Amino acid sequence: MADIGCGPGRVSGFLAGIGVEVRGVDLSPGMIDVARRGHPGIPFEVASMAALPFRDGELAGALAWYSIIHIPQDRQDAVFAEFARVIRPGGRLLLAFQVSEQGDEDVVHLRQAYGHELDLRTRRQSPARVKARLAEAGFTLRAELVREPVAPEKSRQAFLLAQRTADSASEAAAAS
């Protein structure tokens, strides 16, 4: 399994702790350094969500836990296609993200977080739009939860579980 956009490795560490074989990837070398220090038994590497370091169909599953919030809409189709490339047919994908109340997407500009000054834009998104893009990439929705914010959150939170559908090559191999 892959933790895509793993940040400091918190979720990867949880998964490894319950026996899941997991690898973490993140675009930020600094985050990967933190993840490696905090979870030395888990393989972490610097990689983009748009060019994952996995073979076609290598993964039984993946999660992108609040990591698609960093991807502009015009690049999400390519990212979801990349997820479909590396997740084998029948494999699962779990996404978590903040919900937009203003349409397909609203951008939040953070100038301070976690006690640090920064310049970061995140995107709240429409669950309906994300579901449609997942379907176009080759995933079937299996479960959806949208919950109200819990302090200090400022927006509803969405959790989508999708399954990679079989592609025509996989279907032909299964039929023979």
Rank of each mutant, 00 (worst) to 15 (best):
E82Q: 02
A96W: 09
A35M: 02
A175Y: 12
G17S: 01
I32M: 03
W65P: 06
V22Y: 10
Q112A: 15
E21T: 09
A47G: 11
F44A: 02
I71F: 04
R111I: 01
L27Q: 09
P40D: 04
S12G: 00
D3Q: 00
A2M: 08
D77G: 10
R92Y: 08
V86Q: 03
A81Y: 01
A137F: 11
E144P: 00
T140C: 15
S155C: 14
S170C: 13
L160C: 10
A143L: 05
A113K: 10
V22R: 11
G103M: 03
H109R: 10
A128T: 03
D3A: 06
P40N: 07
P72Y: 05
G24H: 02
V107E: 14
R37F: 01
V79M: 11
V108F: 14
Q102C: 13
Q125D: 07
G30D: 12
I32E: 03
L95D: 04
S100E: 00
D167I: 07
A128F: 09
L27A: 15
G41R: 08
V108Y: 12
A62N: 01
T140P: 08
E82R: 06
Y66M: 12
I71V: 10
P127K: 03
V99A: 09
G103D: 02
A128P: 00
A175C: 12
G138F: 01
A166T: 09
A151I: 00
S155G: 15
L134Q: 01
G30H: 02
G17W: 08
Q157T: 13
V150L: 15
R55F: 08
Q98G: 14
G7T: 00
V34R: 13
A158C: 06
P40E: 00
M1C: 11
S12M: 10
D119E: 14
V107N: 12
V99S: 10
D33K: 04
I4L: 14
V20M: 10
Y114N: 12
E45I: 00
F80P: 04
E82L: 07
F54E: 03
L93E: 08
S126K: 02
A175N: 13
R133E: 11
G24C: 03
L134P: 11
M31G: 03
D3W: 05
G138C: 02
V34E: 14
E21N: 13
L160F: 07
F80T: 04
G13A: 06
G41P: 03
I4T: 00
V99Y: 09
R124K: 12
A2V: 05
R147H: 02
S100C: 01
R164W: 03
E144D: 11
Q157E: 15
I18V: 10
E21D: 15
A143H: 09
H39D: 09
D77S: 08
P53T: 02
T165V: 15
A64M: 12
S48P: 04
M1F: 06
G61P: 07
R121A: 14
A135N: 05
